[in-house]
C-alpha cells in the first residue's frame, strides 16, 4: 500500500469537514482507509434512507449516492492538481436487496486517469459481510486542471 502525504490527508479531513451542509454530512460518512490504491468509507445506518415501514431495507438510490461521493474522494486522493470534477456517467448494479440495519462499507478506486477523464469503480457491502456485496458501480468523471485546486475552492467556500 503506497502512502499518501500527510498534507493530503489533512486536506482531505478539512475538505470533508468543510461540507457543513449537504448530503455527505447527512450520510455521516467516516473515512476508514485512504491510499492511492483506493479508499474505504463507512456510512452508519440511517432510517431516513429506507423504503419500508420497518426501516430495514435501504433504497438503492442512497447506495448510488454513496458510490458517487466516494468516487469523488478516490479521485481527489489519486489525482494531483484537479481543479474541478464532474460526474459524466454512472452505472450501478444492485446485487442483493440491501436488507440490514448494519453500517454500510464502500470501497472505491480510480483505476485510470487521463488529463481530462477519470474512471472509477467500487463496491458496497454491509459491515461484516464483505463476501455478500449489495451493489457494485462504475463511473467516469470529467476533470479540469487549473490554478485553483479543488481543495482551495472547497475551503474558500467555507470561509465565505
Amino acid at each position: 500500500m503506497s502512502d499518501i502525504t500527510q498534507k493530503k490527508m489533512e486536506q482531505i479531513a478539512q475538505m470533508w469537514n468543510a461540507r457543513g451542509k449537504g448530503l455527505i454530512t447527512h450520510m455521516g460518512l467516516e473515512i476508514e482507509e485512504v491510499s492511492i490504491e483506493g479508499v474505504r468509507v463507512r456510512m452508519p445506518f440511517n432510517p431516513d434512507f429506507c423504503v419500508d415501514r420497518d426501516q430495514t431495507l435501504l433504497h438503492g438510490g442512497i447506495l448510488t449516492a454513496l458510490l458517487d461521493s466516494v468516487f469523488g474522494l478516490a479521485n481527489f486522493v489519486a489525482i494531483e492538481g484537479v481543479s474541478t470534477m464532474a460526474t459524466l456517467d454512472l452505472r450501478v448494479d444492485y446485487l442483493r436487496p440491501a436488507h440490514s440495519r448494519a453500517d454500510v462499507i464502500v470501497r472505491a478506486h480510480c483505476f485510470r486517469q487521463t488529463r481530462h477523464i477519470a474512471f472509477d469503480s467500487g463496491s458496497i457491502w454491509f459491515d461484516g459481510h464483505e463476501n455478500e456485496e449489495i451493489a457494485r458501480g462504475s463511473a467516469s468523471f470529467a476533470l479540469t486542471r487549473g490554478d485553483t485546486s479543488l481543495f482551495e475552492a472547497m475551503t474558500r467556500g467555507k470561509a465565505s
Partner: peptide
C-alpha cells in the same frame, strides 16, 4: 433541500440525489 447539496460551494444538487429521484 440543503440536504440535497453535493457541491457546497456552488450549491449544486448531489448527483446521487438526482439519480435517486429519477429512480423513485
Amino acid at each position: 433541500e440543503s440536504r440535497h447539496i453535493g457541491n457546497p460551494v456552488m450549491e449544486h444538487y448531489h448527483g446521487g440525489i438526482i439519480a435517486s429521484f429519477m429512480e423513485a
